[in-house]
Each structure stands twice: as structure tokens, then as C-alpha cells.
């Protein structure tokens, strides 16, 4: 039996401005960033997921038209009420699934078309995969009998596609916003069946329910080739983060 539980989405990370970061003549860029991602699902039980990513990015682009990039970083995962019991005879030591830093990777590509010196629009596709299994354990008693179980979330991935509109204002500041769609899924399983817990030993596909959202951000030139990018995304809940990029 496969039970689909919605609402646990992988953190896609920021999309960045539609205009490529690389120099027009072509070149590399690198970045370091932080991203806080939240999502939620309601269907009798409410799961709220939170992830914090710290990543390093490298990319290459040219002609002010296209850019490809890759990220590698670490991310945690918190699923609120993942261990909440629906059975009065089952007690749990903790309600939340909480896993610390595990590696993930992201690949992305974007194209940009300028309408003039000020406006332009672009499209992007970005995917993320979590290399490691995410685990947390829970213990308690079931009808007076002690138990201990481990919940494993693995093969967590997502893909995002969006369109962004950009305006370049004085001082080279780029403002951008647009809609995006996304899909994410993973597999969750509990090491032991415990009555009242919402996961079981059967592999459970977990995925998001809301497939669309919006994003907006600002990209500020700093000094000496550095730029600051701050972005927010909203689908089920608000996610936000920032990155400092360096253009070679």
C-alpha cells in the first residue's frame, strides 16, 4: 500500500534575477547563500515543514541571455507534528521530525530577453536533490509497551519552472517578480509500525499539494564585483533568503 501524504516539499532555493549574473562577454560567477523554506498542508492533520539551506553556487553565462548554475550545500528538515499520535493509547517523546544538516545539490538554467535598457523577462528551470536520507527517531509507549521508531525521508527532490519580469532601476538595482510552478516528492518510512503514528513501514510518497506560487526579489550591486540578492517566495507559506554573488 502506498499512502500519499502531501505537504512536505523540498526547498527549491532562490531563483535569482531573470538576467544572468555573468558578464556579458561570458564568464563565471559564484555565490554563497542562505534560504529558509516553509510549506504547509492541511487535511485533518496539518504538517508544517521548515528547511534552512546554506549553499555555495557556481555558474556560467554569456551574452546577457543565458546562465547555467549549480549549487551544493547543506540543509536541515523539520516536519511539525510528524510524530503526533492520533491514538490515545500511544504516547510519543516528541512531536516533530527534526534532522540536521545533510547535503543537497541544485542545478538550474535561465534565459533572459531584454525589452530595452530597463525591462526584460526571462524563464528558468531549477531542480534540487537531497543526497542523504533524513532521519529522526521517536520513542514512547503504546498501550504501556515501550517502543522506538525511526522515520526516514529519502530521495527528496523538486523541480521548479517560472517566468520572471525584471526592471533595472538606477544604480544598477534589479527588481524582479513572477509566477512559478513546482513539484516535489520524497519517500518516507517508519522503521516500526506504531498505532496512532501517521507513517508506517510502508514507503510513503510525500509531495506538495500546491503547485504554484509567486516570487519577488531585489538584486543590488555592492562593490568590487559583488552583488546582494534577496528574494521571497510564496506558495503555501512564505519562504525567503539571500545570496552574495561574485562575478568573475
Amino acid at each position: 500500500m502506498t499512502l500519499a501524504i502531501h505537504g512536505i516539499a523540498a526547498a527549491g532555493g532562490p531563483f535569482g534575477p531573470p538576467q544572468p549574473i555573468a558578464r556579458e562577454a561570458g564568464g563565471l560567477h559564484t555565490a554563497i547563500g542562505y534560504w529558509h523554506h516553509e510549506d504547509r498542508y492541511k487535511n485533518g492533520t496539518e504538517f508544517v515543514t521548515r528547511q534552512d539551506q546554506v549553499y555555495s553556487e557556481a555558474g556560467y553565462g554569456a551574452q546577457n541571455r543565458w546562465d547555467i548554475y549549480a549549487r551544493i550545500g547543506v540543509s536541515n528538515l523539520k516536519i511539525q507534528d510528524a510524530f503526533s499520535s492520533t491514538n490515545a493509547l500511544t504516547t510519543t517523546s516528541n512531536n516533530d521530525f527534526d534532522e540536521n544538516w545533510k547535503f543537497f545539490g541544485t542545478l538550474g538554467a535561465k534565459v533572459f530577453y531584454p525589452f530595452g535598457k530597463t525591462f526584460g523577462m526571462g524563464a528558468f528551470v531549477q531542480g534540487t536533490y537531497s543526497f542523504n536520507s533524513l532521519k529522526d527517531d521517536v520513542s514512547g509507549t503504546n498501550n504501556g509497551t515501550p517502543y522506538r521508531a525511526v522515520l526516514t525521508v529519502q530521495d527528496l527532490w523538486d523541480v521548479n519552472f517560472g517566468i520572471g519580469f525584471q526592471a533595472t532601476v538606477p544604480y544598477g538595482i534589479r527588481l524582479y517578480a513572477g509566477p512559478y510552478v513546482y513539484y516535489s516528492e520524497g519517500t518516507a518510512s517508519l522503521s516500526t509500525n506504531v498505532p496512532g503514528l501517521q507513517f508506517s513501514t510502508t514507503d510513503t510518497t510525500i509531495k506538495n499539494t500546491t503547485n504554484a506560487g509567486g516570487f519577488a526579489g531585489i538584486d543590488l550591486p555592492l562593490a568590487k564585483g559583488f552583488r546582494l540578492n534577496v528574494e521571497g517566495q510564496y506558495s503555501e507559506r512564505l519562504s525567503a533568503g539571500g545570496a552574495i554573488t561574485y562575478t568573475y
Binding site: T30, I32, S56, A58, K224, G225, Y246, Y248
Partner: peptide
Amino acid sequence: VNTVWGIGGLMDPASSKDL
């Protein structure tokens, strides 16, 4: 700079003309 923006030191942006 080189560790964070130089991909762990593989690149040397710190020696650039800007920095």
C-alpha cells in the same frame, strides 16, 4: 573570499584587479 566565492579555493577571485 577564495574559500567562499572561489569554490573552496579552486578559483582565486581575491587576486582580481577589483579586490
